[in-house]
């Protein structure tokens, strides 16, 4: 039988070393060019999520090139595009106004959001049933978690016990919860 064996151990170790090196380079570059310590917490969180998303898109792109059968046909590229665009869209409000006006930056976010929405719809249409199930379960788990958190926060705010989280901070929390939810749901199906 032509068995689909996992990669040989040396190759797996080399892959992990490569990923670790890529992580170190990414962290080093971010630390070199960004004064994360001087950022407000909501900006720091969104920057962290943005870097994670872009890094994941790059790694997924490499994996897709090496092992194309890991995703349903046509889905891998769309997943990479959706992740990369999500990361870039989180970075635009942080840095784009250094070079362009707020209005132009917002227009850029809108344009990228439209492209990402199309990519996500195409991904849904091309996905096989397990990938769709993973997407649905991720959405459900993330919604349930965020609903609980938002209710607690809202109740605390009404009681004058909490406050100060901006919409920008909330989207950072939402993205973080979504990423964790997607990792948990995918791991349950044996996808690492």
């Amino acid at each position: 039988m032509t068995e689909d064996r996992p990669l040989p151990l040396p190759l797996r170790i080399a892959g992990m070393a490569l990923l670790a090196a890529a992580g170190a380079v990414t962290g080093g570059l971010v630390a070199r060019f960004v004064d994360a310590g001087g950022l407000p917490p909501d900006d720091a969180l969104n920057l962290f999520i943005a870097v994670v998303l872009v890094a994941m898109a790059v790694v997924s792109g490499v994996v897709l090139t090496l092992r194309p059968s890991r995703s349903p046909k046509g889905c891998g590229v769309l997943q990479v595009v959706a992740m990369a665009l999500a990361g870039i869209m989180l970075m635009i409000p942080l840095y784009a106004t250094r070079w362009v006006s707020s209005e132009l930056a917002f227009a850029l976010v809108l344009a990228l959001l439209a492209v990402q929405t199309v990519a996500n719809l195409m991904l849904w249409r091309r996905a096989d049933e397990m990938l769709r199930r993973i997407m649905v379960e991720t959405g459900g788990l993330a919604f349930w978690t965020l609903q609980l958190a938002l209710f607690l926060y809202a109740a605390g705010e009404r009681l004058g016990l909490t406050g100060g989280v901006t919409a920008w901070g909330m989207i950072g929390v939402l993205m973080a919860v979504y990423l964790v939810a997607s990792a948990v749901v995918a791991a349950r199906r044996g996808i690492k």
Partner: peptide, 25 residues
């Protein structure tokens, strides 16, 4: 058949075949 071959015949990804075989889906 390899998992990829079966996946092709079924029109799903190899990961889906793997999840089916291991009882995860």
């Amino acid at each position: 058949w390899s998992q990829a071959e079966l996946a092709d015949r079924l029109g799903v990804s190899r990961q889906t075949v793997n999840a089916l075989e291991t009882g995860r889906y």
